[in-house]
Write a protein that binds this DNA or RNA. Structure first.
Lengths: 175, 175
DNA sequence: TCAGACATGTAATAAGTTACATGATTTG
DNA sequence: CAAATCATGTAACTTATTACATGTCTGA
């Protein structure tokens, strides 16, 4: 049920906004840690409204509806942040393949790991570059978004190093 | 569609087995990188059979059905390993909360990061201990499972270090 | 005026979770 | 003979994805 809290949290941080506004945030920043598509966002806005956690605060042109978090919504958000233990997802498509690399020839398995290392290296560089370009404000989303981005950079670097190590393990094993 | 390949891959590696056998593998090892429950596994066995990628090779006591991978199944598995780019999931409940830590008092935000660091440290130690206890064979699942486990260890360590760093960032910021 | 951005929604399908339901075999 | 383990399946529900459908406003 985290989509609910992603929407609720964004509305709290942005101090209100429309479904369209939220989608933009999902696309450029929040989506890197919790992705959601348009149907989901609009659907969740409806459910959150029905549950009294958010409310329509204004209506604008083109049917635009601006939502704001209610007191109940703020309470739920804090409860989720403080009391609910984040459960880590255990699904990783890259690693799943690793389990089955024995189905390939050893050189193909090594090539797989090599490709992962390259890919991760590329991503790590992209992130590092992006990190340098952005001049961060000191609003909350900037402060905490910066922490999340640094996580991403370290994550990619770790994956690259692991893939290099793993490729080497297989090479060593050959002999 | 990775569940399908998780089941297919396991059957290939184990050289056949029942739904029950597969479930045990998901519980003790594979589930750490791709979790699945009993309904999913039995359901997928049915679909894979219908699609001709696996077949019932024997029937045993208590209605036990033993499945084996067909030639078509082996082909599909290799195709998936070689040609399909693993797409990384972008959902992390821990990090999602980080985006919204501005909704809490600074000391609560720090406490959240501190708790994450402790939790990750604990997991990292558990994994390291487990890694030491297991005496790995040199069958494929062992060789590649070992690589996956080392990934897990590094991942936990990276998360701990990041959380410690992030907590410190917030502390520094306070002044 | 027309292209692009703004803006919301629904329908159909697929994937994942939880709970229920049943029964056979082995082992102490 | 009772408990644990083996073994499979279905139903109901929730969550996520993809595609479709529609219309408004703004700026060049």
């Amino acid at each position: 049920m985290s989509l609910r809290h992603a929407v609720l949290g964004l509305l709290a941080e942005l101090d209100g906004g429309s479904g369209y506004d939220l989608m933009k945030m999902f696309e450029v920043s929040l989506g890197n840690v919790w992705s959601a598509n348009q149907s989901q966002v609009y659907g969740e806005l409806g459910k959150l409204t029905a549950d009294g956690l958010i409310e329509v605060t204004a209506e604008g042109p083109r049917g635009r509806k601006e939502y704001g978090v209610t007191e109940a919504g703020r309470g739920e958000l804090r409860r989720w942040l403080l009391e609910e233990e984040p459960k880590q997802a255990r699904r990783d498509a890259t690693l799943l393949r690793v389990f089955f690399l024995g189905q390939l020839d050893p050189d193909q398995a090594q090539a797989y790991l090599h490709a992962r290392a390259e890919d991760m290296g590329r991503r790590a560089e992209e992130l590092a570059a992006l990190q340098g370009r952005i001049d961060w404000g000191d609003d909350n989303l900037s402060v905490y978004g910066r922490l999340a981005m640094e996580y991403g950079r370290r994550f990619m670097a770790m994956r690259r190093e692991w893939a290099e190590w793993a490729e080497n393990e297989l090479k060593t094993r050959e002999s």
